[in-house]
Amino acid sequence: MERWGASMKEIERAISPPHEQKKSKPKEGLTGAKERWTEAMNVVPAILRAARCEGSRLHTSSSLRHIQKQTRLRVVDNSELGKSAMLEGRPPRCIHVYNKKGIGRTGDKVLVAIKGQKKQAILTGCHQDQFPLMPKFDSNNIVLVDENGSPLGTRIHVPIPTFLRKKLTEMSRPKGVDYTKILAIATRFV
């Protein structure tokens, strides 16, 4: 137990109820509630430190790189809206994923908030680890589309996976939304 040392104490302090905790000196300018909040915020690193100790049973997984609400995405088409948003340094944020799970994968439709507007987009590349033969990109790429499925831009200069040929034709409806126009504006398939 000695090797756990301070980290174990920190955890015990963190998970014991507030009234049992010794009142430590509050930081300058912090009230009681804020003091507890900062303490709580310091608990997670303590637990993580404990997890990295030898012989610890706590298990923390690495970043999953899910595409879900609040995820920042990269627009890869040459639409004016997308280009200006990326140049400004305010990339679009996902606010809804159009599937049951809420976690977006390559080819899924998402709703993004971009420059104060809500726009639909198709995920053309994910940073998450993929199955064999599916390309994994260094950034989470999207192509902005309107309600009919036609893209806002005229060209995609970044490679997109061939899997989208199958996925977008499946998503499209005859006499309805047609997502396959994205395939027409793509320059390179991977």
């Binding site: 998970i15 014991s16 709580a40 637990i47």
Partner: peptide, 8 residues
């Protein structure tokens, strides 16, 4: 949960 005041 591991945190948020959960007691033992």
């Amino acid at each position: 949960p591991a945190t948020h005041g959960v007691t033992k």
